[in-house]
Amino acid sequence: MNSQSTKRSILSLSSDKIDIRYVAKLARIALTDDEVQRFGQQLGDLLEHVNVISKLDTDSIPATAQVVESRNVEREDEVRPCLDRKTVLSMAPQAQGSFFRVPRIIAEDG
């Protein structure tokens, strides 16, 4: 996350086109060809708009992750009541016995 790499990535942005299929795969959303086309266009446009921030010199600027600085918000190690299983499993799209059931997992899903 040093400024060197930041600069390099920004320089490369203009020539990059968003790989919508790859991103959709990461986000686990199936897209139709029409959506690939449409979203690709819209997101490309949006990226052009957001690229204005690359003009700002932020080399010495810290990143804001939290607007109100706060530290060490921790809970005591105490057990609290859980939800009852009937409620939990009543939400399940598919349950089997005491479990949630999902279709087969293919290793790459991890």
């Binding site: 996350m1 790499s5 930041t6 990535s9 920004i10 490369s12 942005l13 968003i18 991103v23 990461l26 986000a27 997101l43 957001v50 921030i53 690359s54 700002l56 932020t58 600027i61 810290p62 990143a63 804001t64 992750a65 607007v67």
Partner: peptide
């Protein structure tokens, strides 16, 4: 997802957090 993805994180997400500052 794109803004956080490998190779773009610094240019987009981190950069945006800095502009936020």
């Amino acid at each position: 997802t794109y803004a956080l993805s490998s190779g773009y994180y610094d240019a987009y997400y981190v950069k945006a957090q800095k502009v936020r500052t």
